[in-house]
Design a protein around this nucleic acid. Structure first.
Lengths: 272, 272
DNA sequence: TTGCTCCTCACGTCACGTGAGGTGGC
DNA sequence: TTGCTCCTCACGTCACGTGAGGTGGC
């Protein structure tokens, strides 16, 4: 003999709007305990109030409805907790990024940031162990950490094989469509046995214009702006992917990162 | 003789997608320095790169495009700074709310929270100074602080006139549509001169079921759930707005708040 | 000349909000 | 019986993303 509540009453008890409640019914996130067959009136059980409260908090945290449903449908408490903890960690990283963005914005608006120096560099072809993939913009850091970690596995037996810093190639589509091919690689002196996603590749030689960026990746656009403007003003741009060299591991504290951005250019050899 | 960049180049220098850049052109947020009359090709000036970087950061902070345009079009630096600072303060309050929500979610999921006691109370009609308005859900706290502050002004000359805590009435539509009538009021012993939005009103007497909520307003839904369930189970609900009594000023630290939620009920007088 | 870049519609996405127009319950 | 609550479409919003189908520049 559970107490049934109209949608309006349930709205007042849960602080969810009537429109939101109907939407949650439509998508199967929170279905009323009973629906009158003839009138279509929704009737909610008083016992559904706590679930609604949880949904409201997840929405306040911007969790998508699909993921909330997954969390609520988790078969056991541990699976549910895992999903929740994973989202909370996500939120915490968002908070950190927000604070970094605010600081970066202030710096930009105050102006007076020195222009970073650009260096020309000719690099020869390289042999490397690599993982390639089609990567979504917002997922890049996560993907990169995963790919490089997997490559470290192939290097575990041969620590001396490495002959350069972690690096990656980024296709034009990656920047222009915010999804595109990325190749994470570690240069090696000699071929190694590889498993999983790893493969052996040749990284072609190139003439590059290079700039060094220190700090978090969110600010990398500053380096790209300075470097790309430099290249465009001199009309020396050449085809080919943009390279990034991670002089400090991408898994380190963002504030400590040191990243080279390398832009393919065509320059007379005599200038190099 | 400024350097002009194609939309693809500009995308790589700014880390904004081509689709986003076209959208910003369409809505007039960031228009290319030049558009080819015959082909429609967009050409961006290298000097537009810093503006694009600023836009990207504001978008990372979820600032709406309209507001970004307002900020960028601000006639003088001080107006611009004011708009920026106001948004940064908004962001900071969002951060605080997020952390509070995470804590509240954890508490909800761990369960075991004691049910708050419900008290019956019969109140007589009151005279009050009040401000009424149609309020949007997300704007409620801001509106309430503003309205009560304005009412304090009318009380400034007659500090003894007050005869009860700050309070407000909330219409059903306010909960169900997340926008609706709210009346903020302060009970007074005698009529006072009022100006601006303030007016003198009669708050009718009523039989109420009352619950005390301690802590931030984001958690008020817990009190509403407990109180509304109590009322529904006994089928004693009556028409009329829901009242909140602010025993601690709404402008205080959220953690210190003490708020009574009062639900209109119909009970035999003999039960009171 | 090829193909790569760029173009403009038109429609989709997500989580609802906004009416319109109509029926049911106390 | 009134009017208040609830119902279901259908479409709008915001900031783009996703193709389709087609043209222009090196």
């Amino acid at each position: 003999m559970s107490t049934l509540l109209s949608i309006g009453e349930f709205s007042r008890l849960t602080h969810l709007s009537v429109k939101a409640l109907r939407h949650y019914d439509d998508v199967g996130l929170l279905q009323p305990a009973d629906v009158d067959a003839s009138s279509g009136y929704r009737r909610y059980a008083a016992a559904q109030v706590p679930v609604a409260h949880v949904i409201r908090r997840f929405r306040d945290l911007d969790m998508p409805l699909d993921r909330i449903r997954t969390v609520l449908e988790a078969p056991d408490a541990s699976a549910r907790d895992e999903a929740i903890i994973s989202h909370l960690q996500h939120m915490e990283s968002i908070l950190e990024e927000t604070q970094a963005t605010v600081a970066s914005l202030r710096a930009l608006l105050q102006g007076g940031e020195p222009t970073l120096p650009v260096e020309y560099r000719s690099v020869t072809g390289l042999r490397a162990i690599a993982i390639r993939g089609t990567v979504e913009w917002d997922d890049t850091h996560h993907w990169l950490v995963g790919a490089l970690t997997e490559l470290y596995g192939a290097l575990a037996d041969r620590p001396d094989a490495r002959c350069g810093p972690d690096a990656a190639l980024y296709s034009p589509e990656f920047f222009e469509a915010h999804t595109g091919e990325v190749i994470a690689y570690v240069p090696v002196m000699t071929d190694l046995p590889v498993t999983g996603r790893a493969e052996l590749v040749d990284i072609p030689g190139a003439d590059l214009a290079v700039i060094l960026h220190e700090g978090p990746f969110d600010d990398l656009d500053k380096a790209y702006g300075a470097l790309g403007t430099f290249v465009a003003e001199r009309a020396i741009g050449a085809d080919g992917p943009i390279r990034e060299h991670y002089l400090v591991s991408v898994a380190d504290d963002p504030a400590d990162l040191r990243t080279e951005v390398a832009w393919p250019v065509s320059v007379a050899r005599s200038n190099g």
